[in-house]
Design a protein around this nucleic acid. Structure first.
Length: 270
DNA sequence: CCAGACGTTGTT
DNA sequence: GTCTGG
DNA sequence: CCAGACGTTGTT
DNA sequence: GTCTGG
């Protein structure tokens, strides 16, 4: 789950919406630093191993936007390749897993909890069993109120033998709410505006209390074109709503009144 | 003691 | 780094 | 997460 | 089937 997302909102707007300090407070490594901002471009189809703006608070300092690589590389890893597999961390076990627990429970200058800003994320719905040639249908999920999502994550640092520093993150996952459950059995942990500071700077007990499924009716979803399944495709079409064609022969007559949403495609879940 | 794992998702 | 398994 | 590759020798 | 790349 949550192996792809979109972030097309400009970093200055991200900072405003997520309460990240800009202006004088930023350091040279901030996404908002002029030389780093120059490299920014809107992204519609972000895959693991890519480097994206993430909100971190180094050693309890004021939260800032920094570029981190998606796919957590623990400090003890032999190489970066493990990161491709650790793009998610289960909320139910994040305090126990050796690769994750320090980042969660013992934040420091080079590891900790983070917020991953996203305009929305993608989820693939399994095709109904027995449908020949059926492939997974991707959906785009975004906040119903149009605001940015703040996904809960953890981050760590790894240094190569050549001394190159890699800062990387994983997205926490949990059981889905009502809308997400129609598509998939997991969803990212979402942090409400009023909980951001507590998530980033609170003690482990406070942070643990925020690992909850988002309330129902806070997300809206629509099917998107399958061409975005290739991570090489990265344009605004990736998040555009498409109307799904009904299965031609498999099911008897289906009611034609189908929205552009998932409501005509269910049956497996719930 | 050292060696080896350290993760999730989805599928069977 | 730290835990588990042998 | 999905898509795409999965290999060497020798020649250009 | 399994790993790598994006």
């Amino acid at each position: 789950m949550c192996g792809r997302y979109a972030l097309h909102t400009h970093p200055e707007v991200i900072a405003l919406q997520l309460g990240v300090q800009g202006g004088a407070g930023i350091d040279a490594r901030s996404t908002l630093a002029p030389e780093r901002l120059a490299g920014w471009k809107p992204r519609w189809n972000i895959a693991p191993t890519e480097t994206m703006p993430v909100v971190i608070a180094r050693s309890d300092a004021a939260p800032q936007l920094h570029w981190l690589r998606w796919g957590l590389i623990p400090s003890w890893a032999n190489d970066v390749s493990i990161g491709a597999k650790l793009n998610n961390a289960r909320a139910e076990s994040v305090t126990e897993k050796p690769a994750f627990r320090q980042a969660f429970s013992k934040p420091a200058s080079r590891r900790g909890r983070c917020l991953i800003p996203a305009d929305g994320y993608f989820e693939w719905q399994e095709a109904p069993a027995g449908v020949r040639g059926a492939r997974k249908q991707p959906y785009y999920l975004q906040q119903a109120n149009g605001k940015l999502l703040a996904m809960a994550g953890i981050w760590d640092s790894w240094q190569s033998a050549q001394g190159e520093l890699f800062e990387s993150f994983a997205v926490l996952t949990i059981a889905p709410n009502k809308e997400a459950a129609l598509i998939h059995e997991r969803m990212p942990v979402l942090i409400a505006d009023e909980d951001r500071q507590r998530w980033l700077l609170g003690n482990p007990t406070e942070a643990l209390a925020l690992l909850r499924t988002a309330p129902d009716d806070t997300l809206r979803t629509h099917a998107v074109d399958r061409r975005m399944s290739s991570a090489r495709i990265d344009d605004a079409q990736c998040i555009a709503a498409v109307k799904l064609n009904e299965p031609d022969e498999e099911s008897p007559e289906t009611k034609a009144a189908s929205s552009d949403s998932h409501q005509d495609r269910q049956g497996r879940l719930l």
